[in-house]
Design a protein around this nucleic acid. Structure first.
Lengths: 262, 262
DNA sequence: TAGTGGTCTAGACCACTAT
DNA sequence: TAGTGGTCTAGACCACTAA
């Protein structure tokens, strides 16, 4: 009995990849497996490798490319991790039917808006050192009453307010120049300060706007707002930012791609 | 100049791990790297390996365990992928300071509620075959007007409505028995039918409740609701489900853990 | 300079899938 | 049965970090 579904599409189409030539540069500092992965990804992106296409077995590939099998496997694995390829024992490696574009990102509102061509601007409302409230202290792993930077910003696109952002950061983590904060996003400033974000915990909810929020965001009192709380961690697992954000639901929604880890 | 932050914690604590003994069973069908990864994870979970602890270099580890270095690396890599360990060239491998519990999940409302001890129940409002509307057809990659199953459910906890779920599935994908749908979740039914979810695209937003939604969810008209649209794909990338969900913001919020892929 | 992880090789055997 | 990916070994050299 097939454990399978009644609506089929051909599992394989063409063996393909025969004439595909990959240019590997052994002199480059870029790892060989990475060069291969990039070129495979480009081939998939450009449709040279169509969904359902088999990639050919790893041994042949490694011989043709003059690489060892583990190296080829490493290249393939990175694309499997990205969700572009699927491996099936006894079958082969094939291009996933429907592609996943953004595997997952710790999204930055500023980057999101800029990418969407929304020309974001920022107005810093508050930027000072304060003693940590209990929730902030807990989120940042700091003693209650310890110094933290509080940052309140209004974000606009096309002159319209989109969100009110309140963030807390460990004091001294970063030079939070107000002018730079208005010219770029917080995450970009952290990145350029050598802080690499690694993970985050997010809670997304909704509620009605208070009178104050309504006036700040140019909504009516009681309008639906989207809320997000986020704690972000750097690559050693130290909390580097805790934020409470409020978005106008009429102008913003969260959009992600999820991958299920096997 | 240090690219580093002014609030420090010691980078390393104890070399540790000296007496930690791992039991590897070569007769087991479970891969060696996986056995090692599990035992390392358990040691971290139980605090035997504390945050900041160095793991000792890979060569020594492999000698001590009687494994080859690539096998040990593979074990470590899976934990790095999970966000439990950090590797630094020239430094070593250490346990992340603040741990990430759920790296990421394609969350199922039913499972979420059950896990939270909320005893979810479901009422199937509608379960029939209909021709696909344009948006549904586009999401499922099916011809417009083609047959799809439409499923409308109300989900409760403690007798209170939490969400109204509307899902579309390719016709014939799954046997959608109403009784089973009321006893369990849709994703569980898909999983037990051999469909392995692989990725999904989600949009989360908010809006005010319409009169109809308000009466269904026991809210007032205009109350803030949390909305989600999701298209889920199986491991070959075929869309297997498209859904439009509405949650009572007063009773539900989305909660995730995000990992940034390097 | 010594020690670490990052990359790479050239094999081997096994488990699973399809025919 | 033939072909595939999954796992594993025992080395090698390099790039980076810290002292």
């Amino acid at each position: 009995m097939a454990k399978n579904r009644g609506y089929g599409r051909a599992e394989t189409t063409t063996p393909a990849l025969g004439s595909l030539d990959f240019a590997l540069d052994r002199g480059s500092p870029v790892p060989l497996y990475y060069q291969l992965a990039q070129q495979l990804e480009a081939a998939i992106e450009h449709g040279v490798l169509a969904p359902g296409n088999l990639l050919g077995n790893e041994i042949d590939l490694s011989v043709r490319l003059g690489l060892s099998r583990p190296t080829v496997r490493q290249a393939i694995q990175t694309l499997v991790d990205k969700g572009l390829l699927v491996r099936r024992r006894g079958v082969g490696t094939q291009v996933v039917h429907s592609q996943v574009k953004r595997p997952l990102e710790l999204s930055s509102l500023y980057d999101d808006l800029e990418e969407a061509g929304q020309g974001p601007t920022t107005q810093v409302v508050r930027n000072e050192l304060v003693p940590a409230a209990p929730d902030v202290a807990a989120a940042l792993g700091i003693a209650e009453g310890g110094e933290v930077t509080v940052l309140e910003r209004l974000r606009f696109t096309h002159g319209q307010p989109v969100a009110f952002l309140c963030n807390y950061l460990p004091a001294g983590l970063l030079d939070l120049d107000t002018a730079r904060l208005e010219a770029t996003g917080l995450y970009r400033m952290m990145r350029s300060a050598g802080i690499t974000l690694h993970s985050a915990h997010q809670t997304i909810g909704a509620r009605a706007a208070t009178a104050e929020e309504a006036s700040r965001l140019d909504e009516k009192e009681g309008a639906a707002l989207l809320t997000m709380q986020r704690t972000a961690y750097d690559d050693t697992g130290r909390p580097v930012e805790y934020g409470t954000h409020v978005y106008r639901a009429s102008r913003y929604a969260f959009d992600f791609q999820l991958l299920v880890r096997p």
